[in-house]
Design a protein around this nucleic acid. Structure first.
Lengths: 385, 385
DNA sequence: CTGAGATTTGAATCGCTAT
DNA sequence: CATAGCGATTCAAATCTCA
């Protein structure tokens, strides 16, 4: 195999995974980046085995609402009364859950993961089925709603969260988890299992003639975090209950492939329009969000050696509380005389036990202060194939 | 039945529920305020049906139940190593869960509630069984740990919460929920389904020779909130997995009766010591935390009879959208000809299914419009001792 | 245009009692 | 068991209205 071929193969590996095993279908053999208008179980049956990297599912919750509900001021609460959320019994819901989960398992790659979101009405049935089918639960995640609907009658606790289950194909599976991305996203603290987001509203909420297109549209921020945490650019994310296509819009933005399955005309139409309008992030931005750990380690000194930063340069933290001068060996020295590595000095100045110097220290650019991590990213982009 | 008897019965009903039905055993016929050292299923079997007001359960989380674990057919489950055993063990855990939950259901009063705490390892199995057995889930509650153990390997999200399920005996059950207590506790905002507490440590954590007595001792704050929300003083709270007796200690403090079931010598001993040392709150303190007393009902007509309002007076809603004239019998008649009670007319005019006339209708005063409820308050102040 | 105040709304298993 | 009467009950965010 010549050099050219090697490079080509290596590029393929990075973007599509098609050479992972000959049994895995290639991206161009799959209906990616489009909506399949069909029942989700039938549509999944038509797909080959082990073909997607992630499944994100927001199935019907099987709410069992009584009569009408009015707020204390007399106004009416617009409840989820759609046909797609009606099941004959708890057993019928259970059976439906196990059917679609079994198909999901079949089309998921061995190292893929599944995410399912739900509330107390259905999530225990979902989680139980997931375990019975052989999936291995990695975390349950709590979406804490910043602005939940109150309990108007004062009969229970405000239902202020929903639950997501994240599971791999089995205990030994080598799933993707971009630990560094999550830690960076969370201000250099490990990302916890409880996430706070507002419910979907404002500009993001799809409306037609002033009324919401879908009763349960999920916030993009939620999908963004899920995909950033557990997929790589070029991965295929399938959503069997596509609705208005939040999964597709975020996947396109993050340069992941997506497959959406949805039956309802009105949802399909709205989703397609929305995704067409979504803009993919700049490729470099997506790369930056990937885990630095997988990238080769770069010592700070390497940036000096390669001219990305010069000895004598002045760095400061994001709020310009501290300044430090870069020494020839890559050590920093602060105004007050402390010295050390980028990490050590950051920790010392803040009185913290540790500090990520890459994100703590900033350098002056034409567009203002930027973390020195961006220099490392630039360096990696320039030097990696 | 004479008046005295009626009063006596009414008082009994408030404090102990023993006269609710003759089938319910009296407190003095039950092994309350002590620990039963026995297997939890056997111990529950020895109790009469419908005898406790709440069950709080903190069952084993993991699947390594060792000797405790038997298959539905009675055969023993050995150590779990390979995939088959895992599946087998999951089934065994499921069976165990359904067994103890079925007994729990039998001994719970019709209007009692059950709380179960767990993590993603077991909570889906527990919740699924709870639903299958006919319980009606009221809320799932998230305990957000203020100081969770980090994920040391950086392989997943920090497991920073546990889940509690709160369920009644059925959809129609009249469970206890001290809404006002919860709202007061939460700074006059509705209590949400996500609660933040630190994990149990410091003085509260039971230790012997420097090592913790129990690996998963729950914080008293958690039990405090659960009991304050869903029981009344004098109620009986049973804990089938008593451990070091957090449930008993908090029950004693809040003047609830408790029954603890625990097998292990070391836990029983530690729990007994701990509960003996716990001090019940002053009775008035416990009473104060209950919901504010029901004000005696006052019919609208009483205000007319006593001259607080005169027939012919004109009432309106806060925004003066509607006006109505008070009739001699306490009925209202609006400008447009509708008539009815203060509640009925308010509802009719707004096109709402119901309306609280006391707060909807206002009367003119020197300081502007005031709800007629203020007249009721004035009347009550003048007539109540 | 801006800010203050009013209005709207969101996956909701949402009342109790007497007749 | 159905119906009617009484009367208790909401939080945060986005949008709209108006001075």
């Amino acid at each position: 195999m010549g050099v050219i071929e090697k490079v080509a193969k290596s590029r393929l590996r990075q973007t599509t995974d098609v050479v992972e095993t000959p049994l895995v279908p290639r991206v161009d053999q799959l209906p990616v980046d489009r909506i399949i208008q069909q029942d989700c179980i039938e549509a999944m049956r038509a797909l080959p085995a082990a073909c997607v990297d992630m499944i994100f599912a927001d199935p019907p919750y099987n709410l069992q609402l009584g009569g009408d509900l009015n707020r204390p001021d007399g106004s009416h609460v617009d409840a989820v009364t759609d046909e797609w959320d009606k099941f004959d019994s708890l057993n019928a819901y259970d059976a439906f859950t196990r059917l679609w989960l079994a198909e999901a398992r079949r089309i998921l790659k061995p190292n893929g993961t599944i995410w399912v979101i739900g509330s107390y009405h259905n999530i225990f049935k979902v989680g139980s089925a997931i375990q019975d089918l052989g999936f291995w639960i990695l975390n349950d995640i709590i979406w804490r709603k910043a602005n939940p609907m109150p309990n108007f009658k004062g009969t229970r606790f405000t239902n202020a969260h929903e639950t997501l289950i994240w599971a791999s194909m089995g205990e030994k599976a080598k799933y993707t988890f971009n630990y560094r991305s999550m830690k960076t996203l969370n201000d250099e603290l490990q990302m916890r299992s409880d996430w706070e987001f507002p419910i979907c509203g404002g500009q993001e909420r799809l409306k037609k003639n002033g009324t919401k297109v879908h009763p349960t549209q999920k916030p993009e921020a939620l999908l963004y975090r899920v995909m950033l945490a557990c997929t790589k650019p070029g991965d295929i994310v399938l959503d069997p209950f596509f609705g208005t296509g939040t999964t597709g819009a975020v996947a396109k933005r993050l340069r992941r492939h997506w497959i959406g399955i949805e039956r309802e005309d009105s949802y399909v139409e709205a989703a397609q329009e929305r995704i067409d309008a979504a803009l993919p992030l700049d490729e470099s931005a997506v790369t930056t969000m990937q885990a630095p750990r997988q990238a080769p380690r770069v010592a700070f000194g390497v940036l000096l050696e390669n001219g990305y930063l010069s000895p004598g340069a002045v760095l400061s933290d994001a709020k310009r509380r501290w300044r430090a001068v870069v020494g020839v060996d890559g050590n920093l020295r602060s105004d007050c005389g402390n010295a050390g590595s980028i990490h050590k000095l950051g920790a010392t100045l803040q009185g913290a036990p540790s500090c990520n110097g890459w994100t703590f220290w900033h350098h002056e650019t034409a567009e203002g202060l930027k973390p020195i991590d961006s220099l490392r990213q630039t360096y990696l982009l320039a030097t990696q194939p």
